[in-house]
């Protein structure tokens, strides 16, 4: 990433925190690319899907974006979050592997492969409260807007926004913990 790209990233995030939704989507897209490269370079062992790190980092960026100081560059903030999430995942995965190894040597390998086929985010989504899950799925999986989701589920737009935000916070908390 050169200086111009870095300045562009900062500009997009600044526009995003001022309420520009399109700039925010563009920022997240660029962030996803950067974190993907970062995670792929560092994940050398099996059992961790770099895309899970990308998604968990994007969720963290989203829920913690008020911690970014608008006069600071965006890249160091973004990479610090990605590094934190990667280390946290290494720690959690390591612990999970230890448990598996202790209990039964034989099942360790095949179970690892099964896990890789399903995204962490889908597993977190599956255990949400039904109301939140309906809203988050409608927006994410079906691609509906807030307004369409409100009509479909017979809710007000405000209630949809609240459920979406709470659902995303709950997914971030459950990520990699089940």
């Amino acid at each position: 990433m050169d200086g111009r790209e870095e300045a562009e990233l900062t500009r997009l995030l600044r526009a995003a925190v001022e309420g520009d939704e399109a700039a925010y989507a563009k920022f997240l897209d660029k962030a996803a690319g950067l974190v993907r490269g970062f995670a792929r370079r560092r994940i050398t062992q099996g059992g961790i899907d770099p895309e899970d790190i990308v998604q968990e980092t994007l969720l963290a960026i989203h829920l913690k974006r008020h911690t970014w100081r608008t006069d600071a560059p965006a890249a160091p903030w973004l990479y610090a979050i990605a590094r934190f999430k990667l280390i946290d995942t290494f720690r959690k995965t390591g612990r999970r592997m230890e448990v598996t190894m202790d209990e039964d040597f034989d099942v360790a390998a095949p179970e690892g492969e099964e896990q890789a086929s399903e995204r962490e985010i889908d597993r977190a989504l599956a255990v949400l409260a039904p109301g939140q899950r309906a809203v988050v799925s409608s927006v994410s999986v079906d691609g509906h807007s807030i307004g369409e989701t409100a009509t479909k589920l017979g809710m007000t737009e405000v209630a949809v926004r609240v459920a979406l935000h709470r659902g995303l916070s709950a997914i971030a908390r459950k990520f990699g913990r089940n």
Partner: peptide, 22 residues
């Protein structure tokens, strides 16, 4: 869920921001 779907979802949740840190 693919990552571009997640990004669209996060952007749709753009409005509510918590209290400022300070």
């Amino acid at each position: 869920m693919e990552t571009d779907r997640l990004i669209r979802t996060l952007a749709a949740d753009g409005a509510p921001r918590g209290m400022s840190m300070s």
